[in-house]
Amino acid sequence: MYSQGLIGADGTTHEDEEFLTAFQARIDAELKIEPNDPMPAGYRKTLVRQIAQHAHSEIVGMLPEGNWITRAPTLRRKAALLAKVQDEGGHGLYLYSAAETLGVSREELVDQLLSGKAKYSSIFNYPTQTWADIGTIGWLVDGAAIMNQIPLCRCSFGPYARAMIRVCKEESFHQRQGYEIMLTLCRGSDEQKAMAQDALNRWWWPSLMMFGPHDAESTHSDQSMAWKIKRFTNDELRQKFIDATVPQAEFLGLTVPDPELKWNEDKGGYDHGEIDWNEFWSVVKGNGICNRARLKARRMAHDDNAWVREAALAYAEKASVRETAVAAQ
């Protein structure tokens, strides 16, 4: 997803000038870098961090929406939500595999998530309070993810770019599905419409925060742009998202909770109010409403089920010993 994936990224490399120039020339020629190609250590490290954070976001992102599977209002919505959350798990799996091509194991990455060392998108630290949150997440959160990920389909690292092509198709399906939930609510009763407005009020600003800090604060952005890991800056993507989303809110008859939001003819985009960066950094640092609950849920799934994974491993070992014994006979 997630330009937040670059927060704290250290793109420093120690390779010599000639190597770096040759590498940059490949990037500039829009050649894809593949796992076995030579690459600067900083490039590898930046990608591992970004892909891992993206994968963690998919996995942690299963929790807020999973919160409504048992309570979905109709069978059609229940099946669609379960399938959507399953898709997100599939994205996680796919992304962990892409990261593994860079020489880091899924176990290592998961340990970093569970220890709190690795980050995931701040958006998933907000609670899903009502059914309208499920519509809003599909509409805004998957929508913001798509904004981030469409350019990543042209990312210089081949496996990530290819993963994004597949993932983007599913994310846009999720986005349409979420918007359709909102449309149904907004054409429903007053209570339903109020539920939709309330969800937009709570999710709008956190969705804008998904694009990460202002460009001026985004320390490692330049190197990532040069390496074509990133194609647009955080603020550019945020602006695209706002410009695409505000008319959708208007069509729903909902009010975007930003009194300063105004069409700017000259720039051909919306001006908007300032994001509460204190809130953003507080959530990134682990103090959002659900940070602790999310990590606890992931740790419980991991720890309480360790015996299952150990059993599978023990069985596989026994089976291979038996096979060897049979072969020896």
Binding site: G66, G89, G90, L93, Y96, A297, A301, V308
Partner: peptide, 17 residues
């Protein structure tokens, strides 16, 4: 559906779903 997001492995999460 109660398992979703809490299974022993990611693969099993997908399988139970």
């Amino acid at each position: 559906g109660e398992w979703c997001g809490h299974a022993p492995t990611l693969e099993e999460d997908l399988a139970l779903a």
